[in-house]
Design a protein around this nucleic acid. Structure first.
Lengths: 216, 216, 216, 216
DNA sequence: CATGAATGAGGATTCATTCAT
DNA sequence: CATGAATGAATCCTCATTCAT
């Protein structure tokens, strides 16, 4: 109660105040829809339901606000916990991970983030690099470690687990991600995603499954 | 007669006049480097060596000029002739196509086009769709028809050749394209590209090569 | 009784409370350094160590605060007690006053006040007028009265003592003040100031010293 | 005729075009009245009768426009040709120069320039320095050279002609310039100016006239 | 009274577009 | 047709001022 009322009385402008979250939410919508250049601070203010001036109470400038959005988004997406428990059966894991991954990528939210960050990466390389590392490299790494465990256990035979992880993730996108991000088709149906992920899993195992009966 | 003489005296502005090509060339450089929003008509005029007013003689507005650039670029890239001659050996074709494809993708020019078009696809969906169809779908399609030929000839065993084509193209990007386009690493070396493409080719064949001796 | 207790509990904001002095001190530093337009209320609040809101408890607006600063500064500078004791020897007085006057003028603090007030005088004529009267006219007047005493005593022969006083003060600035305030040179050295003040004193006496032996 | 029509056809934006002069005129009025900070580009545009955008066709930014104004003003004022012909009688020259100098200084135009430049000199020292050198140092220098000629010819006896020149110019301002620039009085009358300049001339000669009959 | 978060009007600057020549 | 000067709407950002707590 006391803490609560104190929080209401003096919401520090640079912490996790409600206003700051409100701004981030509005900004995320506008930035992800229109990109860094296309978004205007006025529109962001309107979307966030605050005045233009308030934006600058919480963020030094447009770039800082944008950076904060991308950081937040990359942390959120990087923390998406795919289930890479080593004891899990490989086929189940591939399928589950592939589905979850593509469902994220082919969502308006996932696609917008990628689009927006990719678009700005040439002018703001730090933003691109951090997003890549937090979201993509991080996921590839965790998946690669799962694969390594199964190489060790003898289920799989893979020379370069980082490459294999990336190969699987790329294959899962086949015929799905590019048409979607270029707005050439509607988001893929769940059935279509299953079909493609199943095919990727099958290919992956065709190449990397350790020969039956082979000793570890 | 009249039309002819008029054409000689003052070439219609919407044809393939030298001025128009000059403008397109300047605009391509600027749009691909800076993106749609980042490019200014003044900079385009300077790059093209014409006055700002002249831009509007040939193109109704900035969006029209941009559309024309992307059309031109997508036609140019769509026509990039990968060697899909059906009689070519599959392994050679995979390797050659994979290398050429990645070398295009991981080149400033290729990456810029993708970045620029992807960035605008949400606001100008037609542009994204047309680019996808002309460049990506077209290449996938031609590759798929090559694969079909080899299914027919019995070299390969593939149910869904469009999917297989896309799978191969995606796998070739593994660990290469995303870090590059997000500016997380330097452009990949030729050796690295070969290594990844070789792995993709090997995987593709591990999954899709027809069992030896099997009748067609 | 009530007023008293209220005064004790919450000192009236328009009196000489410590807070008010604190604000004036911060504001003086900022206004004199940056000028009226260059100073922001935020910076003043920071310099004074109070919140922006508190500024408005004690002063109606930026102009009022500025006016108060200039008033305070002009009173302070107007009270600078040059030694005009009538019994003092003229040569000593001229030299002493001249040195003190120029040392004030060519000091960052003196120059800043003049600059700041002069700059705003066209838009806020009252401020300029009051500063002139309190600081300059007041000093000229006191100096003129000293001169009158010595005219009366027969040491000097001057028709217009106000004019003579101003002439001396102006001459002391020769080659010193304008280059300094226009930032064309470094602040003058003590030697240079002595040299110029000595010359002014000599000229003043060459013109205004009563002929020797002349009766009063 | 031809030159004229050519000028009308293509008024180069960075030369002495009519538009540029028009802008400078409007900007001079606004800058000198309100100072650098007080003047807004919008107001300048209105005063000049052009659009805000046009300002930026001719001047890179507000500071450049301001610098151009001060340069123009300092050149104009620096070129004011006081008559320092060496053969001129000293008394006549002192009086004539003193009157012209004070009439310039105590004019709204002269005072505004000094005020405006002085106010900005701390933040833009180059502008202050250039103005001082062109207008003040230049005039002092020319006057000092006149005095040197008369020292040589034996009319005057002066050790430090630069100092003497500055002393005279400062004395001419006595009781006139400061009250005027601080807006404490109306501009001085012509009679008052004559009175003060005559007194300064008299003092100057009382101190610096070579003793009669003294050999050169 | 003291605070500082919130405001919104206003400032400098850019840029797509128009139009007289 | 080609020009480039001119425009004014729109952008990012600042800051004096207010007000709920």
């Amino acid at each position: 109660m006391v803490a609560n009322s104190s929080a209401l009385l003096s919401p520090a402008p640079d912490d996790d105040s409600a206003k700051r979250r409100q701004i981030l939410e509005g900004a995320r919508a506008v930035f992800l829809e229109l990109g860094f250049d296309g978004a205007s601070m006025g529109e962001i203010a309107r979307a966030a339901g605050v005045s233009k001036g308030t934006l600058y109470v919480y963020f030094a400038d447009k770039a800082s606000l944008f950076t904060a959005i991308v950081e937040q988004e990359s942390i959120a997406q990087g923390m998406l916990s795919f289930d890479f428990a080593p004891e899990r059966d490989v086929e189940t894991t591939l399928r589950g991970f592939g589905l979850a991954y593509i469902q994220l990528l082919c969502t308006p939210r996932g696609a917008s983030a990628i689009r927006t960050v990719m678009a700005i990466a040439e002018r703001m390389p730090d933003i691109g690099r951090r997003y890549y590392e937090r979201v993509i490299a991080n996921t590839v790494g965790r998946f690669a470690r799962y694969l390594e465990a199964h190489v060790t256990s003898g289920t799989l035979r893979i020379d370069d687990c980082e490459l294999a992880a990336s190969q699987f993730m790329q294959m899962c996108q086949a015929t799905l991600f590019l048409p979607f991000i270029f707005q050439a088709t509607e988001p893929p149906s769940a059935e279509r995603i299953e079909y493609v992920v199943d095919s990727a899993s099958w290919m992956f195992l065709a190449a990397y499954r350790a020969p039956a009966g082979e000793p570890n």
